[in-house]
Structures are given as structure tokens and as C-alpha cells.
């Protein structure tokens, strides 16, 4: 797709942004009219609101190219990364902008990421893995291996979209389960056994109801639901293996 040239003629977008501050009883919505380029992103609009309309609007962002995971929020009820979501794709009407779900709102669009990171700890925080697939090359080509950051950018969109996380605070959540599967696949020197034992639990991978909302929400193609089901396959395989061994020993 050729780069979008064309002058960035500015258009007026209407944003309805959720506002909440410690001490408020419940969130309220502020409406803003923002003039930004036709192919501007939601983050461009929110930054413009901050610099031109209301300095007290607080939101998180950093890399602007879906690689750091700080600008996760909900636009029109759907989990998105603000930095790569074009306003044009969010429809004409007032765009409803809310903080991520299933996490404690600290203020306005900023949520507390502590629980997400705490749930990722036991998986051993895998950040870099080995790979050998380059774009434009077929996988069989003998392209040399290289190190690569994991796809997961710890943005919390999957946790926000997950129906089980919406109702059960003890559920590990799709992000942690996907991290557990990554460590199981490539232990990187660690021992995957305790990680598998950690997820093999009623609040772990067996709690997932396979709604696949997390994989739909994931901006980096991590497919946490697929990872959870892969964990289940691995655990079921081991479970059946154990039962057959018991069976043989009993005879």
C-alpha cells in the first residue's frame, strides 16, 4: 500500500472522553471537538485535546507505533491501541473513549497496570526470543536465526476484553497464560515445569471459556486464546499419559 500522501486536510472529530479523578463518585464524560488531519490517529486527537483544550486530561503513550503497549484504551467499546487506530476507522459519530476494562482506573484514561505485570511475573518475564522468519522470505529459506522481542507488548487489551476476567478477580488472565505458553515453548534456560503447574489450576488455563475475545483484541497477533488452548492440550496430553501409566502399573 503506498504511503498515504495527500495533504493532511484537517477535519473536525467529536470525542466523548471518560473522565474520573480520585474522589469522584463515578466517571463522567466530556465532549471535545478536535480538528486534526484526515488520517490522524486517536492518539493524535487526544494529544491535541491535551495541548489545546484541557491540560488536565491524563492518558498514557510513548512509542506511537504499537511497540510499547502503553496507550491501550477502549474506543466505542472496543479495545484498541490509540496510536495506531485511525479516527476514520472509528466512524463519524462522537467517538466514545474510555479507559481499559477489568483494571483499576487511576484517573481519566490511565489504569493501574500493576495487576497485569504481577500476573506476568511467574512466567519469568520472557522479553526476547529466537526466530528465523523474515518478511518476504518463505519459511523454508535458510535465513539465519536472530533474536527478536516477543510480540506481546503487555498492553492489557486482552485482559480488558476477557469476559472471565470481567467477573473473576482471581483469574490469571490471557496475558499471563500466553506468557506461560511462550516459556513452555522456549524455556530460555528456565524450568517450564513450575510454570505449567502454575497455570494448571481452576483459576488458570482451565477457567477460560474460549470466547476468543482476547485474540480478537490483541494488536500484536499473540493469540492468547490459542496459547491457552495449547496449554490445555499439553496438560491433557500429560494427564492422559499419567493415567495410562497408572493403568499399566495397576495391571
Amino acid at each position: 500500500m503506498a504511503p498515504e500522501s495527500g495533504t493532511a486536510v484537517s477535519r473536525t472529530w467529536r470525542l466523548r472522553v471518560s473522565r474520573w479523578r480520585p474522589g469522584d463518585a463515578h466517571p463522567h464524560f466530556d465532549d471535545f471537538e478536535v480538528g486534526v488531519g484526515a488520517d490522524a490517529t486517536l492518539l493524535d486527537a487526544l494529544r491535541r485535546v491535551r495541548s489545546h483544550h484541557d491540560r488536565s486530561l491524563t492518558l498514557r503513550y510513548s512509542c506511537c507505533h504499537a511497540s510499547c503497549g502503553t496507550c491501550g484504551m477502549r474506543a466505542n467499546g472496543r479495545e484498541v491501541l490509540a496510536c495506531v487506530t485511525r479516527l476514520a476507522d472509528l466512524g463519524p459519530g462522537p467517538i466514545l473513549v474510555e479507559p481499559l476494562g477489568n483494571a483499576r482506573v487511576e484517573h481519566d484514561l490511565v489504569v493501574d497496570m500493576r495487576d497485569l505485570y504481577v500476573s506476568l511475573e511467574p512466567a519469568g518475564r520472557p522479553l526476547v526470543r529466537q526466530d528465523s522468519v523474515l518478511a518476504g522470505q518463505d519459511e523454508t529459506a535458510a535465513s539465519p536465526g536472530f533474536f527478536r522481542y516477543e510480540d506481546c507488548i503487555e498492553c492489557g487489551l486482552c485482559l480488558s476484553a476477557c469476559p472471565v476476567a470481567a467477573t473473576d478477580p482471581l483469574y490469571l488472565g490471557p496475558a499471563a497464560l500466553a506468557a506461560a505458553w511462550r516459556v513452555t515453548q522456549e524455556p530460555r534456560g528456565g524450568d517450564p515445569e513450575p510454570v505449567l503447574a502454575w497455570v494448571d489450576d481452576e483459576q488458570g488455563c482451565w477457567r477460560c471459556h474460549a470466547s476468543f475475545e482476547c485474540s480478537e483484541a490483541c494488536p500484536s497477533g499473540v493469540d492468547p486464546a490459542g496459547a491457552t488452548m495449547a496449554l490445555r492440550r499439553e496438560l491433557t496430553r500429560r494427564e492422559l499419559g499419567r493415567l495410562t501409566r497408572l493403568g499399566r502399573r495397576a495391571r
Partner: peptide, 22 residues
């Protein structure tokens, strides 16, 4: 992990019952 607030029990369950954006 207790600090993750769910939207209240029943509201939580109803949350995923509305399929509008799912």
C-alpha cells in the same frame, strides 16, 4: 492479584452477555 476490581458480580456477568461489540 486481588486488587483487580471486577465491575461488580452481576454487572460483570451481564457485561459479557451483551454481545453488541463482541
Amino acid at each position: 492479584v486481588h486488587t483487580r476490581p471486577t465491575r461488580g458480580r452481576v454487572r460483570g456477568v451481564l457485561a459479557y452477555a451483551n454481545l453488541r461489540r463482541r
